[in-house]
């Protein structure tokens, strides 16, 4: 009787393992090595300029600004990545090079956030970008130390802060990491 009971338990366990299709062992995939990003649909604005080089990756409603993210160096298995953020007025026409506008903020702050798990990653450093002559590039910022500690769905969050650290506006985009 007891042996029968344990056999039934064992059989049910095996059935659950192979038939439900939810066993990670039987139902998983391998990492996709091509990093992909997609704009956050909540922030995406259909009327925003969408040229071949310019996309409104981040929209700051209060200042009517867009920011485009351009990877200078994507994070690799050995080194953190680096990108630039270019701010421009959202009302500019799209199919030509935009004129950059500086956001009305004392600091542009970037952080990486994993929403499903509720935690961030290594701190990102964001500073004003300079051209080859050492002149500040208006409305352009450089973020370094971009590294995602694990694979999955991440958010790149850009915040405009005042001198006291208060957040004036923020926007985000989703970035899929395939470690």
């Amino acid at each position: 009787m007891k042996v029968l009971f344990f056999l039934v338990v064992l059989a049910l366990s095996g059935l659950a393992l192979v038939s439900c299709g939810v066993s990670p062992l039987l139902h998983h995939e391998s990492p996709n090595r091509e990093p992909q990003s997609e704009p956050d649909s909540q922030n995406q604005d259909a009327s925003a300029p969408a040229g071949p080089r310019v996309s409104c990756d981040f929209w700051f409603l209060s200042q009517n600004l867009c920011a485009s993210l351009t990877w200078v160096r994507k994070p690799t298995s050995e080194e953190p990545g680096e990108f630039s953020l270019s701010f421009w007025n959202k009302n500019q026409n799209s199919d030509q090079t935009v004129t950059h506008s500086a956001p009305l903020a004392d600091k542009v702050f970037v952080k990486l956030w994993m929403p499903d798990m509720g935690h961030g990653s290594s701190p990102v450093t964001t500073n004003q970008a300079f051209d080859s002559n050492g002149t500040p590039r208006i409305g352009v910022f450089r973020s370094t130390g971009v590294f995602f500690i694990m694979g999955g769905k991440w958010e790149i969050i850009v915040q405009l802060k005042d001198a006291s650290g208060g957040v004036l506006d923020s926007s985000k985009m989703i970035f899929q990491v395939n470690h």
Binding site: P24, H27, H28, S30, P31, H179
Partner: peptide, 9 residues
């Protein structure tokens, strides 16, 4: 679905 790590992960 779950993603299993490989040698580059």
């Amino acid at each position: 679905i779950p993603v299993f790590r490989d040698g580059l992960s």
